[in-house]
Design a protein around this nucleic acid. Structure first.
Length: 116
RNA sequence: GGAGAGGGCUAGGUGGUCGCGGAGGGAGACCCUUUCGAGGGUUCCUCUGAGGAAAGUCCGGACUCCACAGGGCAGGCCACUGGGGAAAUCCCAGCGGGGGUGACCUCGGGAAAGUGCCACAGAGAAUAGACCGCCGAUGGCUCCGCGGAUAUUUCCCGCGGGCACAGGUGACGGUGAAACGGUGGUGUAAGAGACCACCAGCGGCCUGGGCGACCAGGCCGGCUCGGUAAACCCUGGCCGGAGCAAGGCCAAGUAGAAAGGCAUCUGAGGGCUGCCCGUCCGAGCCUUUGGGUAGGCCGCGCAGAUGAAUGACCCCCCAGGACAGAAUCCGGCUUACAGGCCCUCUCCCUUA
RNA sequence: GGGAGCGUGGCGCAGUCGGUUAGCGCACUGGGUUGUGGUCCCAGGGGUCGCGGGUUCGAGUCCCGUCGCUCCUC
């Protein structure tokens, strides 16, 4: 599933946890229900073809490994260093960095601002 | 065989596994909502799913709104000819100038309606001829010499020389992007289209060809006329403005918030691109601060969404596979582009 | 998606009607002043005018194409 509404994005940005890694940035929000994904790529990142390919590879990885992401809303933002990567490389780096980012501390840090 | 010119086509393909957007169908199964009619989702089947440029937004339209848009000025765009086209900075064919050995490429109203500009250099930069220079035939000189008349001189006359005072003269004058037609001759005191021959260029007339731009030939004239309109401009033609974030509907919501200004029919303000006239609407309008929402549906398509769909892996073809992703839709232009294929044509070399 | 605007030394900007010295401030370098540094004074270096074509004798300026950036759009 995908994040569709502006209010969903706002909630993830305001109440979620931000993690910045070398190749991707993550915003993670713990939530009941199936996992939902949002991808943010600026226009300056590359041409429309490059942006579309990156989004497709990220969605493919999300679909293949959906058991990793259950119970959270995630916003992924690729950095400019990802532009030269092959698809297999993007997959490997995305899973690796997400496992680093989504440690156990996510649940602990989140709870207080959930009242919004 | 090599070099090149013009035009067209294609844009990896075939077969599998997993996955995505949309439309239609279902007799079944599951979940959610329910006003118990039904609606939505998942699953199953079928069909369909990016480009020649989708791009840049450079032109032109369709479409939508602005209270159907009148006149003048200003403004913008276009410009050889004939067709095509809804129109266009579009296409096809042709004409003329320039470039190329050639196939071909490129440019296109008017400089003789007027204005402006042409820096530096140069004598001179736009139709008036100045300066230096040349000549000084013809005049001029209280210049010099010789000769004639006279005994001699002045004076007078003639010849030769000088002066450069009148005057004559034009393109010779380090330049410059551009210099007042070019070459040769006649001619003259010196020269010059002053005259002659050829050539270049301009204008007018006539004849013939072509729908036309224009071309070919002949005659005549003045004897020569710079460049720039992607400077102002002139001539002819076209143009109301904004743009799908146009525009319409529904829902939610501040809030009928505060301050200042101008008005309430002798009329603020607004629309008709800017200004004026004219005309129409007209009781509220404008600016600033503060605040609210930035859901959904139509517009919207024989691909078609509204956080926005095409990807990953494997096999074969020896290997490689570019530029690049629809967002209202069409017709063009321009720009980017790996490799491959086809057609037509030109030049050079070799062989027959 | 649509509509406007801007690119000039390292930075921020001028550059008129197209004319030939591309200029100003800060910054940089050298020298002077001072016991030293700052301030101040003098001198100097540094420019593909975003890029590519075109018009013109001549383009930062005019025209066309292209690249990059910024702003507006209930």
């Amino acid at each position: 599933m995908r994040l569709k509404k502006r209010s969903d994005y706002k909630r993830v940005y305001r109440c979620g946890v931000a993690r910045k890694r070398a190749y991707f940035s993550f915003h993670i929000f713990q939530r009941e229900g199936p996992a939902r994904l949002g991808i943010v790529i600026q226009r300056r990142w590359g041409t429309a073809v490059k942006r579309n390919r990156m989004k497709r590879v990220i969605r493919e990885t999300f679909r293949r490994n959906s058991e990793l992401f259950t119970g959270m809303d995630i916003i992924v933002r690729p950095h400019e260093v990802c532009q030269g990567c092959e698809a297999e490389e993007v997959k490997r780096l995305l899973i690796k960095e997400f496992r680093e980012a989504a440690g156990t501390e996510v649940k602990n840090e989140q709870g207080k601002s959930l009242s919004d």
